[in-house]
Simulated assay, not measured.
Amino acid sequence: MSNSDAARTALLTEDHLARTSEKRHPPRTPRDAASLILLDRSGKVPRALLGKRGKAHAFMPDLYVFPGGRRDPGDNRAPLARPLRDEVLDKLLAKTKARFRDHAARGLAVAAAREMMEEAHLSLTPSEYANALRPDVSHFRFLARAITPPGQSRRFDTRFFACFCDELGLDPSTVRDSEELHDLTWLPINAHESHPLPRITKVILTDLVQALEDDPSLPFGKTVPFYYFRNGRFVRELI
């Protein structure tokens, strides 16, 4: 592990221990979830869409996060306008249990697209399928995976997808606040200290900056960092 990777996992461990020092919640099984990092690359520095969670949220209140949420049962059955790339699907199936199959991986992509619509009013469904949930996920890259450690009020096994607005013909100016996320904001991926972000979100953005420096096109089959808690500390594994 490089020094920068070690620093990221150390910060995640420190953050987790600080938040569970006074109140530790009973064990919970992580629920599958997905987030979509939507990128506007029209300027010199790419910007990512984030929104603020309300004070009433039990998980990460008052923090800016990527649109996303848990995978619903219906997401696995939802049709796709265009499917995930094979190399993305293969990465999603890695490091999973035997019962996690293609339909579950596709369901995660649907969940990310559905949450983007519900939380930011941006539809990823092509116009020929208007008034339906039938997203085009062919431009989704699998960027990162992170499992919330034990002791938190909620636990998720989150897959972070990324794609560019122009690939889907989306206008960044058309985003609108929702009950789930407000103050939707396009933040430069390398300059986001003006907004309070969860530690894991900062780490994922750091990974994104590095990935774009390596290749601005974000290759579909790139190596995926996987963050999880083991033996009292966070580890970073590559998929």
Rank of each mutant, 00 (worst) to 15 (best):
H57W: 07
L36D: 01
K55S: 15
N76C: 08
N76Q: 13
D62P: 10
A34M: 09
N76G: 12
P73S: 09
Y64R: 02
K44H: 05
R41Q: 04
G68E: 02
L36F: 05
R85Q: 15
P30Q: 08
G69H: 01
R53C: 09
A78M: 08
K55D: 11
L49F: 04
R41F: 07
R28D: 12
A33I: 10
F59L: 02
H57Q: 07
L36G: 01
D72Q: 14
Y64M: 03
L36K: 05
A56Y: 11
D62V: 04
K52S: 09
R77F: 12
M60Q: 11
D75G: 07
R47C: 08
G69C: 15
A78Q: 11
A34D: 08
G68R: 00
R24K: 10
R71V: 15
D75M: 07
D72I: 10
D40C: 04
G43C: 14
G54E: 03
R71G: 05
K55V: 14
L39A: 02
R53H: 04
R31A: 07
V45L: 09
Y64V: 03
F66V: 04
R82I: 09
L84N: 00
D72W: 13
N76T: 09
H25D: 14
A48T: 02
K55P: 11
A34C: 09
D40H: 03
P61N: 03
A81S: 11
S21E: 13
S35A: 11
G43P: 07
L63P: 00
Y64S: 03
A48G: 12
L80W: 10
Y64P: 01
A48Q: 01
I37A: 10
L84K: 01
V45S: 05
G43D: 14
Y64W: 14
R47A: 02
S35M: 13
L39P: 00
L36Q: 02
A78T: 15
P26R: 12
